[in-house]
């Protein structure tokens, strides 16, 4: 599938809105860019714009990547630039965690471990009315420490829920440290396979690999998990693999460094 949205341009947009609003979560936003582009490339955007009941559903369960989500929505023409520029600012609906107050965002998250069950409910509802559209959920590798994630996984697998795609943004850093130092679930793929799910390892910064895996699950008649191997802070050299950039906001010097690097790519 051809991507009409360039990840580098999305990262520039993210840097702009994070800097303007002095917002945090830079690392997790950068790791999720290609996953989000692949998700929105896989669905009918017009049905999202018209809020059709038959639309595909996208759940950003790792709600911290709101800046990336809003930026991708903007690059796909779902939200306006004037709205995007209000990110994280007074009176805006574009919150630091994804909010359904924003067009194109299905569900408000931020408390981890919620989105997957709600997505599963949508997929079950779709099955009940014979709707064949996709339900795609983006989770974090830290988020899968939440027990509720496995409640949803067990049930989706047991019920063989079709068109149910879960992408794990495996950036390998949770909140304050390396995810494996907190709870080592490596290799993650085997964890999901142990629960009976089909699972695919992909390069999480390669949209073709991600969209191909989405397509495989779509045609498999079973739910599936894509483990997207990513780098926290991707393409922002001073933030790559640095947990502190979950919390820190950009000063002028770091903002200019980030943009300079992105412009050189």
């Amino acid at each position: 599938m051809t991507n009409i949205v360039d990840p580098v341009e999305v990262r520039k947009t993210i840097i702009e809105i994070l800097f303007k609003s002095k917002a945090s979560h830079l690392g997790t936003n950068m790791s999720a860019v290609e996953s989000l582009i692949s998700i929105y490339s896989s669905i009918n955007i017009n049905e999202i714009l018209s809020n059709s009941i038959n639309r595909s559903r996208v759940f950003v369960s790792k709600g911290h990547c709101s800046a990336a989500t809003c930026s991708v929505l903007y690059h796909f023409g779902i939200i306006k630039k004037s709205d995007l520029e209000t990110y994280h600012l007074d009176d805006s609906y574009l919150a630091g965690h994804v909010s359904h107050g924003v067009q194109g965002i299905e569900h408000s998250t931020g408390a981890l471990g919620h989105g997957l069950s709600v997505a599963l409910g949508c997929a079950i509802g779709m099955r009940s009315v014979n709707n064949k559209n996709l339900v795609l959920t983006l989770c974090g590798d830290g988020e899968i420490q939440e027990g509720s994630i496995w409640e949803a996984i067990m049930f989706a697998q047991h019920k063989k829920i079709q068109n149910f795609v879960i992408i794990i943004d495996n950036n390998k850093i949770s909140s304050i440290t390396d995810t494996h130092k907190v709870i080592d679930m490596r290799p993650i793929k085997k964890r999901f396979e142990g629960f009976g799910m089909q699972a695919f390892d992909v390069d999480g910064h390669n949209t073709e690999e991600i969209t191909l895996a989405i397509d495989k699950i779509k045609h498999s008649k079973l739910p599936g998990v894509i483990i997207a191997d990513t780098k926290k802070g991707k393409d922002i050299p001073f933030a790559e693999n640095e947990p502190i950039w979950h919390y820190r906001n950009l000063d002028v010097e770091h903002y200019e460094k980030a943009l300079h690097h992105l412009n050189s790519l």
């Binding site: 069950s117 599963l120 409910g121 079950i124």
Partner: peptide
């Protein structure tokens, strides 16, 4: 088509209910 026993998994019970409501149920 409109019945589920989600198992002993109450968080999933509530989350799935929310998703079904999103679908108009």
């Amino acid at each position: 088509n409109r019945f589920l026993n989600v198992g002993i998994a109450e968080q999933n019970l509530i989350g799935i209910s929310a998703g079904l409501a999103n679908m108009g149920f």
